[in-house]
């Protein structure tokens, strides 16, 4: 979603951006955005930590969490980070076919993760944990739901990147575009590791 630098408008594809810091504008912007996102998730995680024991008459976290399942889904997301790395390296080698392949694999893994979350939410709902049941439920769904939306957006970004590479419609440096999507993807992944540890593993 980033524009190319004004100076380098005609250098599309060469990646020859002359910037004061030497970092590309797009990457710097993505890092700043992710810094901001850290505080977003920080706020949501704090809310969850404050409210996780307040279950009113609904289920208690210990009753419903399915740790083996969540461990697998965390593993899936971790694997998708690996394939994302492969996609970035393929893009840097200017191997479009492999880039697209790994982007697709990453997206598919991400999509199964989202599917797992849909499953988890449905199961929890059946077990009596509605969105409005208790403070625990509201903050749990909001936190993990926000993360789920981030993953979904990430998958869409991956698939669209794949399509625009295929149709040759990348406006900037191709490798850098893939790398920036990758940054986002790794961030979402890291956040999940934190959520998995704080929400699921540390007993409430």
């Amino acid at each position: 979603m980033a524009d190319t630098a004004v100076h380098a408008a005609h250098d599309v594809g060469h990646g020859a951006h002359v910037t004061s810091t030497g970092l590309s504008n797009n990457k710097l912007a993505m890092w700043l955005f992710l810094g901001s996102e850290c505080l977003l998730f920080g706020g949501l995680i704090s809310t969850y930590m404050l409210y996780r024991g307040r279950v009113a008459n609904g289920p208690h976290p210990n009753q419903i969490y399915d740790i083996p399942f969540t461990s697998v889904s965390s593993f899936v997301l971790l694997m998708s980070s690996l394939t994302m790395v492969l996609a970035v390296s393929a893009a840097q080698r200017r191997n479009d076919q492999q880039t697209n392949l790994w982007l697709t694999v990453t997206a598919l893994l991400g999509a199964t993760f989202v599917g797992g979350q849909v499953y988890e939410f449905t199961a929890f709902y059946r077990e009596g944990l509605g969105f409005t049941t208790s403070l625990f439920s509201s903050s749990f769904y909001t936190l993990t739901g926000f993360h789920g939306v981030h993953v979904t957006v990430g998958v869409i970004m991956l698939l669209v990147t794949r399509s625009i590479i295929q149709k040759n419609r990348v406006t900037g440096d191709k490798a850098e575009s893939v790398e920036i999507v990758g940054l986002y993807w790794h961030f979402v992944d890291v956040v999940w590791i934190i959520i998995f540890t704080l929400v699921y593993l540390i007993p409430a």
Binding site: F69, V76, A111, T112, V118, Y119
Partner: peptide, 30 residues
């Protein structure tokens, strides 16, 4: 198209997971 793909995978996959037992779920996921 990307959203539709995510939707199809997420819905189909979650239906399967909801149908099979808890322990089989983790295995199928893997």
């Amino acid at each position: 198209a990307a959203a539709v793909i995510v939707g199809i995978i997420a819905i189909s996959f979650s239906r399967i997971m909801l149908n099979i037992s808890k322990s089989a779920g983790a295995v199928v996921f893997i």
